[in-house]
Design a protein around this nucleic acid. Sequence first.
DNA 1: CGTGTAGTTGATGCTCCTCAATTTTTGTGG
DNA 2: CCACAAAAATTGAGGAGCATCAACTACACG
Lengths: 244, 244
Amino acid sequence: LSHFCAIAHAQRFDRRRIPLLTTINETILAAARLKTINLQYGVDDTVYAQGAPSQFVYIIDEGALLRFKLLPGWRKSILQFLFPGDGFGFEISRYHLDAVQALTPVRVRAARRGALIAAATSNAGLSKLLFNSASRALATAEEQSTLLRGRHATERLALFLLDLDARLHGQIDLPMRRKHIANHLGLTEETISRKFSALQRLKIIRFVDDRQRRMVIRDKPRLQQLASDASDFDYSNTLKRRKT
Amino acid sequence: LSHFCAIAHAQRFDRRRIPLLTTINETILAAARLKTINLQYGVDDTVYAQGAPSQFVYIIDEGALLRFKLLPGWRKSILQFLFPGDGFGFEISRYHLDAVQALTPVRVRAARRGALIAAATSNAGLSKLLFNSASRALATAEEQSTLLRGRHATERLALFLLDLDARLHGQIDLPMRRKHIANHLGLTEETISRKFSALQRLKIIRFVDDRQRRMVIRDKPRLQQLASDASDFDYSNTLKRRKT
DNA sequence: CGTGTAGTTGATGCTCCTCAATTTTTGTGG
DNA sequence: CCACAAAAATTGAGGAGCATCAACTACACG
């Protein structure tokens, strides 16, 4: 038990502060006293596919992944991006309803789903933790819906960046491609690219590497304002200045 | 116990078939053996406000409600519409993170939140039910996110109608105003109105009352097709025919 | 009968998508 | 290390779809 607590602490305070996001987290694994195994994945590797039997639950030690659903007609919908400390892979169904894929080289710990369920069945405290965790995940998902109801691309992107900032703290290292962000926000990659350029021109963000992947937020108040009302920002594709 | 089971059965098979949607349902109340009280609300009455202390959990016997969140700047985001059999009001937080309001005259049963939590703490089976329920609610919320990533108004409206159809079965009696649908789908009420007109012109749906609230789906396959790809449907505001 | 509310329809402009060209970055093999 | 090809990101032009503003209709209620 103390072993896992130590890891949990290291995870939470070491590199990044993270509001836990999904139905599984460090505390749960610790409370269930499950044996875990370490696994590694390379870029673009699939951790599990949609419809596959659900055997393990996972917690991320290092790297980033994306969680998505396949839709009728070859399309997919990216539900969220996962970072160290986040957990995934636990559902009621015995088969996965989503799929998870690595964005960078990844190290995860995996525990048997069956063992977790068995532990929860005889342990009301653990069940309660699971419920808490699912509730928080639900709140996160509804937050996401609210984000997607925002009508302007700038609003959505600003909210997305602020959320990442809160989770990753400080310098944001985007592990995903433009097209992933676009899919997640219900936009196109061209629009994402244009909005990034616009935010950079206005000195609200800055990319600090040549890959345009590592960025800092230079003017968070302005970004927060854009997140709630982008009406004095949104200009079209061209470079004309803001409306008066 | 058998009392509640009877109600649960009546609820599930009597009037409408409903995939349970929120963190609370009939089965949970029955398993927890909670005392309930009956409450009634009139149109537009608030069941609870955002930020209010969380005292009860609720199950709907009759009528329809809407659940929403207030956002910075007087805006609100409608998370979902609730119908008989659906439950609401249970969260981890001791204060409500959302608000619930009646769309029609409503009868609900309420149970004390504290009693439910107490029951869950000593009862692993109940905790597990709560977790299952939260997981299903999570799946629903992620479904909703996926809907909102669809780029065309027609896609979103079609998915919305198909979802209502699955929940209400048969004739759909819309308890909400156009503006509620619009908010929920991230569109404007004018667009909703125009899309309804278009669907009606194409004989995909039909309104069977003069208030334009009660409708039947006349061509479900076509509606399902539009839900996954509206590219051969979307024409602008004007009445011009579909693209070739 | 007015008055108010919900819904529909129309005209216009803005935002974002589409398609395409260009630039930048990444990966591969000599 | 450089040359080359492939992939990712950016930028541009034009058009599609939705929002906005406004007028209009239908119904509800006193």
